[in-house]
Simulated scan of single mutants.
Amino acid sequence: MAEPEDKTRRAPLDAVGRFTATEAVAAALSLIWLVAVAAYSFTAPDGTGPLGIVMTLMMVFLPIALIWVTVTTLRSVQELRAEATRLQSAVESMRNAYVTTQVQPSVQRKLEEIERTAKQAETALATFTSRRDASLVVASADRKAAMAAPARAAPAEDQPALALGTPAEDLRAPLSVGDFIRALQFPESPEDKDGFRALRLALEDRAVAKLIRAAQDVLTLLSQEGIFMDDLKPERARPELWRSFAQGERGRGISGLGGIRDRSSLALTAGRMREDPIFRDAAHHFLRTFDRTFAEFEKTATDAELVDLADTRTARAFMLFGRVAGVFD
Rank of each mutant, 00 (worst) to 15 (best):
D158I: 08
I67M: 13
M58P: 05
R131V: 02
P174L: 06
A146G: 00
F180V: 00
Q108K: 15
P150T: 04
W68S: 00
A154N: 03
A84L: 11
N96P: 00
M94T: 06
T129I: 14
E157F: 14
L175A: 03
A173P: 01
M55F: 14
M58Q: 10
E83G: 14
T72Q: 08
R131M: 04
A146E: 01
A97L: 09
Q104K: 14
R182V: 01
R132V: 11
Q78P: 04
L111P: 03
E92G: 09
A121V: 14
A82N: 07
V138A: 00
G165L: 04
S135T: 13
G165A: 00
A126R: 12
L136F: 11
M94K: 09
E79S: 00
P105I: 11
E169Y: 11
A168V: 14
K144A: 15
L175P: 01
V60L: 13
D133E: 03
V177L: 02
A65T: 07
D179E: 12
A118C: 05
S93D: 08
T127R: 11
V71I: 01
T123F: 15
L111K: 11
A126N: 11
K119S: 15
T117R: 07
A163I: 08
Q108W: 10
L162M: 13
Q159H: 08
A163N: 12
I181S: 03
A163T: 07
T73W: 10
